[in-house]
Write a protein that binds this DNA or RNA. Structure first.
Lengths: 179, 179
DNA sequence: ACCGTCATGTAATCGGTTACATGATTCT
DNA sequence: AGAATCATGTAACCGATTACATGACGGT
């Protein structure tokens, strides 16, 4: 019941759970690994802690199976739904840093030639993966409203991966030519 | 002397300090706020902790002013320099998630119309800021080698900001037209 | 029956953020 | 001299990752 701060992981849990209805932390983990995990991934341990935290605060209800594995099943309360909706309705004006390790190394003086090829391949693979994922959904307008956001976020990811590929292939080429 | 794990902030400290020679945590903070802070920012408190940690582990030496403010001045040791060089020479194959709050909201079902305008302005401003910064340095080839990495990282940032601007202006337009 | 993997959870550790506190300078 | 801001540092809290531990299930 205490007023705890809701963090991005909290909203991920609330968001996923309100679509699923009822689920165990482990189910959430599996679900998160696919879609939203590309944007913001979570360890399974964190999901156990987070669901517990949210349940303590009244945003989720906890139910324990009486037989078998006696797993814990969570469900979003009205309060949780309200908190999520409120957060979703508020625009963020916060700037998110890239915090990319390779760029950090670059900024601190690495020779681009040593990291560019690896990064290039990494982002090419990621781009391909995203594009394949994207191809599975059709046009955004044809999707049910609840599913649109995820696809849009995926499209953002594709754009950034393309940018990464452009960037690192430029560096790979320049150095390749210079040497 | 203990073997502690070196984190990205550790390398930022090592990197900045090895360029500066000797500095106080506060000086590092100021320096970091400008250049590298756009990529990976640090609180001042963290810099105090981190310098202390690194000094304990033997990567920095600590010297205290005898008069005046009795500030702590740090300097990179050979071991520190070695650790930094080793890290810089190792390519990373790790994928960095975007972890952008606005994209997260989008993925969880926000109406794009409510966040797109704010994000658009945010990223337009950031882009302008980066481009002005970029204009201060000339061509990359004319720079001293130590300074090139920072400019390249900045160029990466510009690319991503352009991508953000493209993305959010698309959403802003679509919705604007639909309504 | 046994082995490996998937599933489920807890505990300990640790980095990072927030909050607090105070000492110097500078400006009016 | 007093106010405001810059500079310097410490302490407490908290979220997140790592490590540990065990139970169920599927295949051979």
């Amino acid at each position: 019941m205490s007023s705890l701060r809701l963090t991005p992981p909290s909203y991920i849990v609330l968001g996923l759970l309100s679509e699923l209805g009822e689920a165990t932390p482990y189910t959430l983990k599996q679900l998160a690994a696919n879609g939203i995990g590309n944007l913001w991934s979570l360890q399974h341990a964190q999901l156990y802690r987070e669901t517990e935290r949210l349940a303590d605060a009244g945003y989720l209800t906890e139910r324990r199976e009486s037989e078998g594995r006696r797993r814990k099943l969570y469900r979003v309360t009205d309060e949780g739904r309200r908190a999520l909706a409120e957060w979703l309705a508020t625009p963020t004006a916060e700037y998110t840093e890239l915090r990319d390790l390779a760029l950090l190394k670059l900024a601190l003086g690495t020779d681009p030639a040593t990291i560019a090829p690896v990064q290039l391949e990494l982002h090419r693979n990621k781009l391909r993966e995203y594009e394949q994922l994207r191809a599975l959904s059709g046009k955004v307008e044809d999707l049910p409203p609840e599913a649109r956001g995820a696809v849009l976020a995926l499209e953002a990811g594709i754009g950034h991966e393309r940018e990464y590929v452009r960037f690192w292939s430029r560096l790979a080429k320049e150095r390749g030519a210079a040497n």
